[in-house]
Every structure is written in structure tokens, then in C-alpha cells.
Amino acid sequence: MLHTLPHLTHKSSTEDRIVYFLFDRDKKALSLIFERYGSLLLNVILKVVGDRQSAEDVLQQVLIKVWNKGHTYNPERGTLFTWLMRISKNAALDQRKTKDFRMTSTSMEAQSVVSISNDFSEESHAIRMETEQMISHLSWEHEKLIKMSYFEGYSHAEIAKNLNMPLGTVKSKIRIAIGQLRALV
């Protein structure tokens, strides 16, 4: 089903702009989705497929699907993020069903998902300084919880198990961590 091109003004939200570009077949839609939702979509894909390389492949497929099916998005049925999440979860589940994924996933199980954070070692010195300056205001635990919850594909239950915490405690600590982060940003 095709939807009317939304009216765009200087007061339009980022989501409105993305939807406008998506309906207008403008590639700016993809770069904005990548910037605003890419990390969160990758996170939820990672929860399903388990390894970052596969998750990135799936994210790539998701963005192509979004481009091809952009005209089917109906803003009246939910936000753009909900629609993107639905596509991402389905794509991730489809990936898990493939033969290639089952063959490679066993070798990936040995690697800790937490190792993604090791990417920090490759950062430039200047960026690391800036990052550390901001992150230093967060406690180690809060930083860890934010990364695990929003970027490393851990569910709240997995975090609880991994950090040996009750599920309720994990949720409340994440809540506090987000509060701290909002205050910093």
C-alpha cells in the first residue's frame, strides 16, 4: 500500500524526515536510518544470530529490504523504529535458519561477545581521549550494562546471568545508567 508523502518543514522530526526521504526514494533515508538506528538494529540482530559478522551481514540485508519496502511503511500503525525492528528480527531469524549460519555458528560460540569491546584498542588516540572523558563519568558497571544491553546483543536475562545479578537489579541498574548517560549528553 502506498502512503501520501508527508509534509516536511524545518520543525519536522528526524523520523519524519527519514519517512519523507524513504517515500521519495531518496538515499538520504538510508544514511539517516544507519546513523540514528543502525547500532540499535545491529544490537537486536546480534541477540538472535550471536556473532557480529553475521549480524552485520543481516543489517546489510535489512537496509536493502527497507529501501525496497519503504513505500509499505504506514506511520499510523507505529513508529519507524518499531517497523525497522520487526524487519530486523525477522531477517535475523531467517539468517539463523540458513545452512551456512549453522555451520559457522559453532565456531563462533567459543568467542565471547564481550570481546567486541576490544575494538577500543584500535581507536585513534584523540577519539579515545574524548570517549574516555565522557565515559569516565559513568561507573564501570553502568558503562558495561549500557554496552551489553544496547550494543552487544545481550538480553536483560543474559546480562543477569552473565553478571550474576537478579533480573530486577539488572533492569534498575540499566535504568540508572541511562539516566546518568542522559545527564552527560
Binding site: K27, L30, S31, F34, E35, R36, G38, S39, L40, L42, E56, L59, Q60, L63, I64, W67, D119, F120, E123, I127, E130, T131, M134, I135, I146, K147, Y150, F151, I178, L181, R182, L184, V185
Partner: peptide
Amino acid sequence: AIVQFAKDTQNMPNSEILQKVELQI
């Protein structure tokens, strides 16, 4: 806050993904 954190901590997805998508499109 989350988007900003992702940018500041290099937790954004690899930018090659977007480039590959745009190329494929």
C-alpha cells in the same frame, strides 16, 4: 543519549555496511 554514546564510543556499525548497501542499490 544512546545514539550519542554509540558515536562517542565507536559502537556504530561498520560504515562499510552502508557503502555496500548503497552500491548494491
